[in-house]
Amino acid sequence: MADVLLSIKGLKTNFYTYTGVVKALDGIDLDIYKGETIGLVGETGCGKSVTALSIIRLIQWPPGKIDEGSITFDGKDLLKLPLRDMQKIRGNNISMIFQEPMNAFNPVYTIGDQIAEVIMLHQKKKKKEAWQDAIEMLKFTGIPAPERVAKSYPHELSGGMLQRSMIAMALSCKPKLLIADEPTTALDVTIEAQILDLMKGLKTTTGASILLITHDLGIIAEMCDRVGVMYAGNIVELADVGSIYKKPSHPYTVGLICAIPTLDTKHCNRLATIPGNVPNLIYPPPGCRFHPRCNKAMDRCSKEKPGWYKVGEGHYVSCFLYEGGDKK
């Protein structure tokens, strides 16, 4: 197996709200290898973005707080680093692409200013050099007329252009890990395809690992090497992209994949759904958080939290149905 770049162990992030403690992440374990693209899928509110924000420690206190766990990167536990060191890592070693590029730029500065700012922040470069680098990065992301774009203000550019600029900014310091939090959700389908192509291309040229967060299984299939399926603050299944589609094992994953409409679905058949609602994470169900909605639930599911069981090469499931397999 390739080298581990970043390793998350037992990460628990809670939000202390007036109505109660929202247990947003319930002990996440995840390894990200060098040079791979790993996807996280799950429905809204299952903790995908919280995982991403926890990695670069952008969970705002109050109300959010990382209570337990460790995130090891480059031999250091990010959760124990002083803020100043963390700021050196952000944007430099780990950088992030946000969901809505339209809001992710400061409206009072030009794109070039903002990319140059990141470069000056992390590399000891003069304004002029940084500006040149910024234009270079914009060119790298396939933006036509990068000089003009660098001088534009965010409101003068389209969403697709801004997302390209955002990617240019994120990659400007050659990070080892790029976190993309639903990078294409706010864009239309043709632009989405272009941005995904761009990210794929950039990955091969820069060798950065990508943590791709999305709720679109199609994007996962196209982009990722491995994928983690999240449900209510847990990763419930972790596998290669091929095996998750061929052999979905966790009942939730099975439900998700059945819920994808296909062309040969008979018109009289209703689209398969998972019964029930996402649990309120202030009062999460005991044991396996999926058991109230699971059609294969057993008695013990409501009492104990399942561990990790191996069902295939690099394919792990957190469900008692597979207890017979090897433990991870």
Partner: peptide, 8 residues
């Protein structure tokens, strides 16, 4: 948040 994410 984006500014924070680049280490400002």
């Amino acid at each position: 948040e984006a500014a924070r994410s680049v280490g400002a």
